[in-house]
């Protein structure tokens, strides 16, 4: 299915592996990603943790709205 979309290899793999952290870094809007994360079984805290791990592993967000978030949060 993913082959039918205009995605890079990295984007395809992140989606197929349900790698929420990398998807966040690749620029997916959180208003959509939070629902996808819940769909994959991640509870709220695990979702936040996955994004923080994504930033720690892959660096700051590369595209989209979130390029300036510092990833430190408050909760």
């Amino acid at each position: 299915m993913v082959g039918g979309y205009d995605l890079t290899e990295e984007e395809q793999q992140a989606f197929l592996r349900e790698d929420i952290g990398l998807l966040y870094v690749l620029g997916i809007n959180g208003q959509l990603l939070m629902h996808y994360a819940a769909f994959t079984g991640l509870e709220w805290d695990a979702y936040i943790k996955a994004m923080r791990l994504g930033v720690a592993t892959h660096g700051n967000v590369r595209a989209g709205l979130y390029v300036m978030t510092d990833g430190r949060g408050a909760v």
Binding site: Q31, I48, R52, T69, G71, G73
Partner: peptide, 11 residues
């Protein structure tokens, strides 16, 4: 607010 991001909770 920074909803649905790693900064969620920052106000």
């Amino acid at each position: 607010h920074w909803p649905a991001t790693p900064d969620s909770g920052k106000i």
